[in-house]
């Protein structure tokens, strides 16, 4: 057993011995310390405020931010998604569901592949915005954008269908920041198990 007066060696050299010295009179009446505190709080009245007034002002968002999803179209305006279901499989939150359908001959200009998603839904309340769906997609169809999912009053309105997700033909969504050459190479790399 260690004796009471044994000297304790500090291994880090950072430990400080607690002081139990008696307070002086000035310390005991507390008023100088209280005045100092008043000074500190008063100075905060004139400091720059940390508040960002959200709907009018938004904080800067990185271009590679993982926000609301977009279902991309190809250069001719056809939907890229082929309803393979890999995104739904990859999704750790199980937020994605879809129903596949076969492309009719007169729908050649609408869908790129023979099979397409007639229903594609993401539950934004389940989604954790990890980006695994984007990583899993073999058709470069789904991407996360730097747009934020807006708040709403109803749970049901957070299930986003194709109407919201598919990018409009006349208003293309730029995802080039997330689809860099490095990402594309990664997707084509045969050494990666997901590309075999």
């Amino acid at each position: 057993m260690s004796s009471a007066n044994q000297h304790i060696v500090s291994l880090t050299g950072r430990s400080k011995v607690a002081s139990n010295k008696k307070m002086t009179f000035m310390e005991r009446i507390y008023l100088p310390a209280i005045m100092k505190g008043f000074g500190i709080t008063f100075s905060h009245l004139f400091k720059k405020k940390a508040t960002i007034q959200y709907p009018e002002v938004t904080r800067p968002i990185a271009e590679i931010y993982r926000g609301k999803h977009v279902l991309k179209r190809d250069d001719e305006g056809r939907e890229r998604c082929t309803a393979c279901g890999l995104c739904a499989l990859a999704c750790p939150a199980e937020a994605i569901t879809m129903i596949a359908a076969e492309r009719k001959p007169d729908e050649m200009h609408l869908y790129r592949e023979e099979k397409y998603a007639s229903v594609y839904e993401i539950n934004m309340l389940r989604c954790i915005f990890c980006g695994l769906c984007e990583e899993a997609c073999p058709k470069e169809a789904i991407f996360l954008t730097n747009e934020i999912v807006p708040s709403d009053y109803e749970r049901s309105s957070f299930i986003y269908g194709k109407v919201i997700l598919v990018e409009p033909i006349d208003k293309r969504v730029d995802i080039s920041k997330r689809q860099t050459p490095a990402v594309l190479n990664f997707k084509k790399d045969k050494n990666q198990s997901h590309n075999i």
């Binding site: 709080t41 905060h44 009245l45 400091k47 720059k48 405020k49 940390a50 508040t51 007034q53």
Partner: peptide, 13 residues
């Protein structure tokens, strides 16, 4: 308002 200012916030506005 003051509580906000003292804490570097804006308070109700």
């Amino acid at each position: 308002k003051l509580a906000g200012f003292f804490q570097d916030r804006l308070g109700p506005n």
